[in-house]
Design a protein around this nucleic acid. Structure first.
Lengths: 108, 108
DNA sequence: CTCTATGCTTAGATTGTCTAAGTAACTCTA
DNA sequence: TAGAGTTACTTAGACAATCTAAGCATAGAG
């Protein structure tokens, strides 16, 4: 079980997908990703937060400040309709890319 | 069948894999990739050639000028032993990454 | 003799992620 | 009650990777 870096170009897809399950704040997003990857994939904060800001500017996600269970403030993000369409598109693109990679790695 | 861009971070793996089948010159590499992807994946020349130079500097591939069938000169690249090890490593990394992506995209 | 395909080269822009540092508040433990 | 660890966010700058775009040169087809 080696440590893995996120593949450049897949960060938005990952975040959109996680947020499509339920609204979460940034820190929780990074924990979800770690959990879903059995701790193998680490989403750096310096990557995650700027990505959230960028995607909010693009209208893919929306946010508001809330209090968490433990009395801390956190900015909670949720997927917008446009974000849902973007997610579908990026998901399809990923499936295409990984299929192509599969056929290349299958060469003999 | 949409057009696909290469995922940043997978270029070396793609080229090493193609060269592991048989030695090829740059132009042929790009054609192999297109063929293996049913024309969906285009390897830009401005990406491919610098990648070849870079990998040769690292010792992963070796090259020599040759004449092709049609009387043109071409620099033919072949995988080195070190390149073979690098390929194995990148291939394993890809499998890990795509498995992780799969489990994230499977979230419900 | 012009057009298309083959084949290579390189400068610079652009994009994306990471490194690294910082702020701040809460919880647990000694 | 002081300190450590966790939660949570912010941002500047570095760095790596790919693409854009332009160019050179030759061969074969029409």
């Amino acid at each position: 079980m080696t440590k893995l870096n996120i593949l450049p170009g897949t960060l938005d897809l990952i975040v959109l997908k996680v947020l499509s399950i339920e609204p979460l704040h940034g820190y929780a997003v990074s924990q979800r990703v770690q959990a879903a990857s059995n701790g193998r994939l680490l989403l750096e904060e310096g990557s995650l937060y700027p990505a959230l800001y960028r995607m909010e500017r693009k209208g893919w996600i929306e946010s508001e400040w809330q209090k968490t269970d433990n009395g801390r403030r956190a900015r909670v993000y949720r997927l917008s309709d446009e974000g849902g369409r973007q997610l579908a598109q990026e998901e399809a693109n990923w499936l295409g890319v990984s299929a192509v990679m599969g056929s290349i790695l299958d060469l003999k």
